[in-house]
């Protein structure tokens, strides 16, 4: 568990660093997620107060965007592109094989906390699909062998 006082201090720093921006909520949420790996529930009232928003408004923004997590991900995050250009190169088959190998579906994490599998709709690698992102690293022309990269 995160230490709540430490969390609050770090979030206060992030809020301070974004003071003066026009429309600062998304940059703040990105910074919070970069710091903690997710947006902790306890951050919501603190952010809301600082920006003079309701907690519901902040929660609404967090839940609208696919990027923001309310719980930590696995040690590795494997994103596979599901969009048309990658489909044309067999992305559905690769995704099926990866799901079977990991024993999980989209948005799930393996029981040992090793890998979270997420769909992504386009990484802009449409001429070298199927495309994937492993912990932020781009991979073109991937196949089911990509599970080896998240083995540890």
């Amino acid at each position: 568990m995160l230490d709540s006082a430490v969390t609050a201090d770090r979030i206060a720093e992030i809020l301070e660093a974004h003071r003066g921006l026009e429309g600062p909520l998304l940059p703040i949420l990105h910074a919070v997620q970069a710091a903690f790996g997710h947006v902790p529930q306890s951050a919501v009232p603190q952010i809301a107060k600082a920006l003079s928003l309701s907690k519901a408004e902040v929660h609404g923004v967090i839940s609208f965007y696919h990027d923001f997590r309310e719980a930590p991900a696995g040690r590795h995050v494997l994103k596979l592109c599901r969009a048309e250009a990658c489909q044309a190169m067999g992305a559905d088959r690769v995704a099926g094989a990866v799901k079977a190998a990991l024993g999980i579906d989209w948005h799930e994490t393996t029981p040992d906390g090793r890998v979270t599998l997420e769909p992504v709709f386009c990484l802009g690698l449409c001429a070298c699909g199927p495309a994937a992102m492993v912990d932020g690293r781009l991979v073109g022309r991937c196949d089911e062998g990509i599970v080896a990269e998240v083995a540890k």
Binding site: L21, L26, F64, Y65, H66, F68
Partner: peptide
């Protein structure tokens, strides 16, 4: 300023 989207 550069702003970053959030997957929508």
């Amino acid at each position: 300023e550069i702003r970053v989207g959030a997957g929508a």
